[in-house]
Design a protein around this nucleic acid. Sequence first.
RNA 1: GCGCCUGUGGCUCAAUGGAUAGAGCACGAGAUUCCGGAUCUUGAGAUUGGAGGUUCGAAUCCUCUCAGGCGCGCCA
Length: 558
Amino acid sequence: MSAAQKIIISEVKGILTEIGVEGQAPAVEIPQDLSHGDYSTNIAMLVISKIKTQNSKFRSTMELAEYVVKILNAKYQIRNTFSKVEAVKPGFINFWLSDEYIINSLIQKNSEEGSLKRKKILVEFAHPNTHKEFHIGHLRNIAIGESICRIIEYEGGSIFRTNYQGDIGLHVAKAIYGIQDLRFKIQDLETKSLEEKIKTLGEAYALGAKAYEEDKDAKKEIQEINASLYQKQDKYKDIWEKTRQWSLDYFEIIYKKLNTHFDRLFFESEVYEKGKEIVESHVEDGIFVKDAGAIIFDGEKFNLHKRVFVTKEGYATYEGKEMALAFLQYSLFPFDLALHIVAQEQEGYFKVVFKALELIDNKFKNSEKHLSYGMVELKEGKMSSRSGNIISAFWLIDEAKKRIKNEFKEITDYVVDKVAVGAVKYSMLKFAKNSNISFSFDESISLQGNSGPYLQYTYARTQSVLAKIQNSKIKTQNYNSKFKTKGLNFEAEEAGVLRQLIQFEGIVEDASESFSPNLICNYLFDLAQKFNLFYQKCPILKSEKEEFRLTLTSKTGL
RNA sequence: GCGCCUGUGGCUCAAUGGAUAGAGCACGAGAUUCCGGAUCUUGAGAUUGGAGGUUCGAAUCCUCUCAGGCGCGCCA
């Protein structure tokens, strides 16, 4: 919340108290329409009904609003901050910041503490499974995860980036079965490029998955492979370790490309034993119960559903493993909050898992949160690695690069890479978390309109202008103090950019509270539009500091 | 069957219960002696799936209904 908003709230609250309304904190919002001021409050409309019954002094909402405005205008704090305070039609009170205030708030460093200062937040994202395709759904996950990390960091929180990967289980067994069925010798494959290894692994998985469903003998064999791995027998150990490493090497390349990293990688293979232990140790106290040979959690007691935590074969399921994972994560990074960034199809699953965790150890109550987001859907239907109906992350980025190269011949590889990744990431980020993305190739690599490259282009413009100014030997740092703050009459376009700029802190705070990167995207796109309009209309002579600030802003986004 | 999510111009999406429902794409018409045309201006295009209700005020909240997606014991 901005300082100006705080002033409004405290002053208005004071006036309300004087006229006999206690405990009403006015909401101060930022109107969408500039003609409604920089800030606006609807407090008069909220309290009028209370007042009417006890005091006949105000007969209408407008009368109340006008009275509040009259008192406000007499306050020093208000006159110092706002150029105009006005009561409008239904009963809104609108506030216009004074030019001096706006300029000063741009120049001054934000001295406020981030809203998440001293909070320790563990963010778990990406989580691809080894032996399976890394697809555009993972891309969205990483875009959101990394963005949320940066937003939280901006608000002063300390972040622990983690990635929990499924490197053991049926899907692995299927892939290993498939490799043997393809009659590949692991030694032959080892001489191939990483790309070919990954491709083969994908095919092997598809094959194994198909066989598992259609062929009873294959199913049995896959289950044996699975058991062998869980029991740490030697038979498949070598091939498992090698293929697993291929996947991990490949993922690492993608993380670099997307400009993300992890403080710790977690694997299912390191928690399944402990997970089973934990679950079994809580059968006695009734948290888990045995049922048909398996150990389950009866979520129905909590309006959830039942889930198996340990199979009748004695292996911890995904939910069972999660029990150990939470403790392991906490021991390495004692978090205030653990965010699991996972698609919304897992919502029911996480509710059950968190409830079980909370019963085992109360410290996990309210400190585990599933941050869900909509799925990436293809026009033709859901992606499935079994049917091969899948878009890999790498493929998409490569296609984007091709298109960019095609359109702009004289462009360096470095720039192509940045633009392609920017386009793809932005296309994953700009939607509200909850909405399913209906994936469109053209749009995800769009270069104009509401797109990553549009922002990048705008940023490039600002840098270009700045570079020219520096050539003429004026130093960037000196913009701030080199102009008078009084008597600058802003052009409409300038005012638009200015007013957008001063909202930045608030937007980031909103984004951090609701974990919504798309708010930042919306903001930046607005800002870029306003800047480009300004750029078109006004030669930049006197207001250089606008880009100076824009520079900072653009940096923060992606 | 039960539960969660979604339904907004031709398409893809915005909009802490607020003021005239905003953008982008596509489509029509324009802008470059001047800082990057990956830009900008302008036009047309919407009973916010439907019906009730709450409220000074509803795309947003409640109820019903239609349509779609996802989830619901031995996968991850």
